[in-house]
């Protein structure tokens, strides 16, 4: 967030025309947008991986290595990209691979290159830790962070159905307000695929709607539609003749099969 805000503040600076006239196409711009992109997307992504890694894999990543990764990437990032602001203000253009030796940019560029190695080392460590932990990390509990949201009530990793019974949620932090037991609903059938229909605003249960079973008809419908559309490039009659297999497949899809899911 701090990184993203710094990128945002330099964004306000380059939006000012007199300033932009000076730093346009210089390393100041490179520094600015890396603060925006890395602060806005890369750091949140890394954080999300650390946060949900136990839920995804059922294993914990290493706390010690995590601190090293944070220090190397966060510190290395700032040491790499903050000096680029200064290089830009000193007039170094972007998108060049070399420059005359009398230009005063060599020292900072060496510093930037060495700092970038720290960032690369941090990422290497991160990938090693992620792969190693997924393979043989300590087993994660359902809610290792003491987090508040529902996914942490499911086991780590979750079952394909997530919850055997749908939870009832009464607040924005259900796992904090319902600390002892998860309130759930019972009464859904196990001999047909069902889902719960509730009222839109209040969330009051209204019906147990059936969920679709496996069917070949959607595939036929997709093939018939594809055939019709591709054929219609070559002849308008494709729309007329193609509508027949499309209709047949849609009607076949709709027609009741006499399974428990048709009951009402």
């Amino acid at each position: 967030m701090v990184i993203f805000v710094i990128g945002g503040l330099t964004g306000v600076m380059v939006a000012s025309v007199p300033f932009d006239t000076q730093v346009h196409d210089t390393y100041f711009v490179v520094a600015h947008f890396h603060y925006v992109l890395v602060g806005g997307a890369v750091f949140p992504l890394l954080g999300a991986i650390y946060y949900w890694f136990p839920k995804l894999t059922g294993k914990m990543m290493s706390e010690t290595l995590g601190r090293w990764v944070f220090g190397l990437i966060f510190g290395g990032f700032n040491l790499t990209f903050f000096p680029m602001h200064i290089l830009g203000l000193q007039g170094m253009p972007r998108r060049i691979y070399t420059y005359q030796p009398e230009m005063p940019w060599a020292g900072l560029n060496m510093f930037v290159s060495l700092s970038a190695i720290a960032v690369a080392a941090g990422f290497l460590l991160f990938f090693i830790d992620a792969i190693r932990s997924a393979w043989s990390g300590p087993v994660a509990t359902a809610n290792p962070w003491g987090a508040s949201t529902l996914e942490w009530a499911a086991s780590s990793p979750p079952q394909p159905y997530n919850f055997a019974r749908p939870p009832v949620v009464g607040s924005r932090e259900p796992l904090w307000t319902e600390a002892t037991a998860l309130p759930v609903v019972a009464g859904l059938r196990v001999d047909r695929r069902e889902l719960l229909i509730t009222s839109v605003v209040e969330g009051i249960p209204e019906a147990l709607e059936s969920s679709v079973g496996n069917s070949i008809w959607p595939l036929w419908a997709a093939l018939a539609t594809t055939l019709t559309l591709v054929w219609s490039i070559f002849s308008p009659w494709a729309v007329v003749w193609g509508s027949i297999p499309v209709s047949v497949s849609l009607i076949g899809w709709f027609w009741p099969k006499g399974v428990p899911e048709d009951e009402s």
Partner: peptide
Amino acid sequence: MKEDIVLDLTELPAHGLGTASP
């Protein structure tokens, strides 16, 4: 996490009409 059954939906209809129908 331990489960606490707070609502039994056995009596709900197996299909809704109007806004209760997908």
